[in-house]
Nucleic acid binder design. Sequence first.
DNA 1: ATCATAGTTCGATAAAACTCGTACATATCA
DNA 2: TGATATGTACGAGTTTTATCGAACTATGAT
Lengths: 124, 124
Amino acid sequence: MSTSTALADIRLPDDLPPPLPEPAVDELRLEAVMGALADPLRLIIIRKLLLESEAYDHSCGWFGFDRPKSSLTHHFKALREAGLIRQRQYGLERRSRVRLEDLDARFPGLIDLVKAWEPAAPIA
Amino acid sequence: MSTSTALADIRLPDDLPPPLPEPAVDELRLEAVMGALADPLRLIIIRKLLLESEAYDHSCGWFGFDRPKSSLTHHFKALREAGLIRQRQYGLERRSRVRLEDLDARFPGLIDLVKAWEPAAPIA
DNA sequence: ATCATAGTTCGATAAAACTCGTACATATCA
DNA sequence: TGATATGTACGAGTTTTATCGAACTATGAT
């Protein structure tokens, strides 16, 4: 769980770009999270991040959705503002990851529901 | 878990009024369930049924919401059509219960999320 | 029969949310 | 410097959802 010393709990900037604005853990609201997951495309996004991302964050394009860019921006923003994903700017790309620890802390079991979900129909 | 004989597993009509139209277990959709739970009032309904109902089904009025009746009809219907509650007509009243077994079977862990939820503000 | 009760249905309005085109901003690379 | 790639911001059109009043239905009691 922790590294060798207690001081290791002080996280250094870690060289990562800072996350885009997002709700803090204690600001996460179940109703907002549910609302964000009420959309099939957004469920696909989260599920794909959970099942197929190998420890890397992924840009919008990685998902391969055949949708206008402005639509994708809309959905990724919805996920970020509900607290489901964290986004960081890497040069041109804005990469996303699921806020696993935060979600597990506030809503244990939620992530498993998304993992187990099967889309009704391929949505692209 | 079971009663004395195997034949007891054949459930007799049980003298209950038939449930209003509802999706079958295998028709339950996570996105629909999430959508139904994205509303604070509907979360309150489910949570109150989970925590305060002593093995009885409860009518609309039992909840004590200060809202027009047509609004309550709307929300109870939304919950029923998403598969979260089962409703039966008892004379004048239409009593509701959470579809616990069905939800546990399809979305294990979901109910616990609602149980643990705390409303941001009293909604009435 | 009359009356009150519990809830529905309909219709209108208003507020959100989704979808997408266009224009824009910025980083990377030749 | 200019071209390209990733993604945002804004705005319009469309759809969905919420809210609520008013009229209605059906049950149960007096």
